[in-house]
Nucleic acid binder design. Structure first.
Length: 673
DNA sequence: TCAATCCGTATC
DNA sequence: ATACGGATTGAC
């Protein structure tokens, strides 16, 4: 049914429909059988939307499949009506939603809300006259040209990846899987378009997920160039209901085989899926803010596994999760060849605390590391723009060592230390133990403190130091797409760096120690990700491109930036997580709710007995009023599905017995890590 | 003896 | 969630 044609005749005679009702209660999260009245035999097809009577109420649901009979011992109720015969929920996506609900301890109907956009009747009708173009195959696959593989020659394993995608035959057998580190200055949207073109050449479709609108615009432009405007769609939440449904239909009806989009595009019903891809999987925009809070990378990897298709995880940087795919042999490393790096990478220098004091005409002083001052002056003299990356406002720095600035961690469970008030003792944010006699594990100091942001002043002073140069700001929500290639100071928050045709002449990464001291275990990874994202926009060292980072050169992330070796840093990061038993080397699930509710869930789910090696951490009091508390369940990675199943069972029991307060369950809670 | 109510269980 | 059934309670 990949072409959206009517269901085969034998299906339309089956008198029973398995329906997934839109009911978020965990214990009702399974299909129910309904009798299909004769009048609906042809329209209540698998994937269609129906209305049924359920527990005395009229509710919406999806037909999962049609069956000859039912195992249900009682009499079947009849479908009330078919809301729409359009098969919007394909079997592949239905199975994906089930797997996502299982893995993230949620209900299938919650996931379906993310996966299938709201119906828009007018659009559905207007787009209807779609003649069954027999023989006229879906838009001709563009020939995969030698040019598609050329740019990939800069990467170890790159040519093989493109070749494997293009040469794959439909059918069983997993496709190629890769974790791709983009070379500095890379035209990454064009590279994705080439991967999609290669997959299309093999007769298969692609789903590519990017963090935000700006990246989506870039990838869409590249797809338009490579594949033509009719061969792909971009899907995002802010399209509006009509346009969103129109584009979704063009995919589910098999008219378009390539989808690019943000989070929800993970579930796009691309026919004969050949490749799933994600760009910049370290960006927290890939974390779904609605229950059950799945991460796009993990949804896509699950989908690749279920559909046996190819998967590519790409970015300037690499997450510990991405590295794990490589280290356990599931995916191949696709990284720039040494020569490519030499030719394309900017020079990276570290700035010590040696500060130059420049004075403008009014005599105001700017404090700036000497090498930074020099790099800016030289780039401006060449009439090139200079990028200054500043931390996003609102970042709360964490407790860190007062002398060496290493993040302060709990000596027992390695959680981040926090301080409820300025007079309170620091305590662990995970297990709640007070850390009265804290000692820095790196330098032995016994004092810790909160880091303070001081960026605004630095930028202001920079502007004063170079008064003749325009200062352009690219800070959300006023993000600049591009800036002209002329002398200017461009101040941008991470991820909001404007493009500039020939690249920046210099880039300043200031207050680095402050970013590295952010709470949570992603501080190091996240800092390097931001640095690489900015530094990748700088001209090669051969053209004078210079990146200045104000941090201790012995810090791992600084070394990785200097050598442009994100995979090395990710491998170290992963080793550390293994030692500390953090994700992705261990499963971590947080349970949040009232003290009684959390305790009850732990009790009835028997999560402690679900798999060997489970640990319960906490509880800690959370929320401003201290009204709720949180417990963490930690287990060896192999035990995640058992832990998830136990918690799902427990949630089911609690909801069946009408327990008063709900418990929020989050698997690998990003904001905590 | 019958109704009103409570609790537990199923929801096709 | 609702809806139903069986047990329980209370008043005639």
């Amino acid at each position: 049914m990949s072409e959206g044609q009517p269901a085969p005749a034998e299906v339309t005679t089956l008198p029973v429909a398995a329906v997934l009702v839109d009911m978020p209660l965990p214990h009702l999260d399974k299909p129910f059988d309904y009798a299909v009245p004769d009048s609906m035999l042809g329209t209540a097809v698998p994937g269609s939307r129906v209305r049924v009577r359920f527990a005395g109420r009229l509710v919406d649901g999806f037909v999962l499949e049609r069956r000859a009979g039912s195992d249900h011992p009682g009499r079947l109720a009849a479908l009330v009506r078919v809301t729409s015969p359009e098969p919007v929920l394909t079997p592949e996506v239905a199975a994906l939603c089930r797997a996502v609900a299982d893995r993230w301890v949620g209900s299938c109907s919650d996931v379906l809300r993310l996966a299938v956009p709201a119906r828009h009747a007018r659009v559905e009708k207007a787009e209807q006259p779609e003649p069954p173009q027999v023989g006229a195959a879906s838009p001709a696959a563009p020939p995969v040209s030698a040019a598609d593989a050329t740019a990939w020659q800069a990467y170890q394993g790159g040519t093989e990846l493109v070749g494997a995608l293009a040469g794959r035959r439909a059918g069983p057998g997993a496709g190629p899987r890769a974790v791709w580190t983009a070379a500095p200055g890379e035209d990454w949207p064009a590279r994705w378009a080439e991967l999609a073109a290669a997959t299309l050449f093999a007769g298969q479709g692609t789903v590519l997920v990017v963090p935000d609108q700006h990246d989506l615009a870039r990838v869409s432009a590249a797809m338009r160039t490579r594949l033509g405007p009719e061969s792909f769609v971009s899907l995002s939440a802010d399209l509006g209901p009509a346009e969103r449904y129109r584009r979704f239909l063009s995919v589910s009806r098999g008219q378009v085989r390539v989808v690019v989009g943000t989070r929800a595009a993970c579930y796009a019903p691309v026919a004969d899926l050949g490749l799933v891809g994600i760009w910049d999987d370290g960006d927290d925009l890939h974390c779904e803010p609605h229950a059950p809070y799945p991460h796009s990378r993990d949804v896509l990897l699950l989908r690749a596994h279920l559909a046996q298709c190819a998967a590519v995880v790409g970015g300037w940087a690499r997450t510990a999760e991405g590295q794990r795919l490589v280290s356990r042999g599931w995916a191949r490393d696709v990284v720039p060849h040494r020569e490519a790096l030499r030719a394309r990478a900017p020079r990276v220098v570290t700035a010590d605390d040696d500060v130059a004091v420049a004075r403008d005409s009014a005599g105001a002083a700017a404090r700036l590391p000497h090498v930074a001052f020099t790099a800016v002056r030289e780039a401006l003299a060449r009439d090139e723009p200079v990028l200054v990356q500043v931390p996003r406002r609102g970042y709360r720095a964490g407790l860190s060592c007062a002398s060496c600035r290493a993040p302060a961690r709990c000596p027992v469970c390695s959680g981040s230390l926090q301080q409820a008030s300025s007079h309170a003792l620091p305590a662990c944010g995970w297990c709640g133990r007070p850390a009265a006699d804290w000692t820095c594990s790196r330098c032995g100091s016994q004092r810790c403190r909160y880091a303070v942001l001081g960026t605004a002043r630095t930028v202001e002073e920079l502007g004063r130091a170079f008064p003749q140069v325009p200062v352009r700001q690219s800070v959300s929500p006023h993000v600049l797409a591009a800036v002209p290639g002329e002398a200017s100071l461009v101040v941008a928050t991470p991820g909001a760096e404007p493009a500039t045709a020939a690249g920046y002449g210099a880039c300043l990464l200031l207050d680095a120690w402050l970013l590295l001291g952010m709470p949570g275990l992603r501080a190091g990874e996240e800092t390097l990700r931001r640095w690489l994202g900015a530094a990748a926009q700088v001209r090669p060292s051969g053209s004078g491109g210079t990146v200045v980072v104000s941090a201790d050169p012995s810090v791992r992330q600084v070394q990785a930036l200097v050598r442009w070796d994100p995979q090395w840093a990710a491998a170290r990061e992963l080793e550390e997580r293994q030692e500390l038993r953090f994700p992705p080397a261990a499963a971590l699930v947080s349970l949040t709710g009232t003290a009684a509710a959390v305790a009850e869930l732990v009790e009835v789910s028997e999560v402690e007995r679900s798999t060997p090696g489970v640990e319960l951490l906490g509880p800690v009091v959370t929320g401003e009023a201290g009204e709720s508390e949180r417990m963490l369940v930690r287990a060896p990675l192999a035990g995640l599905s058992a832990v998830a199943a136990a918690l799902r069972g427990g949630q089911g029991m609690r909801s069946a017995r009408k327990a008063r307060d709900a418990v929020r369950v989050q698997v690998d809670p990003y904001d905590l890590l």
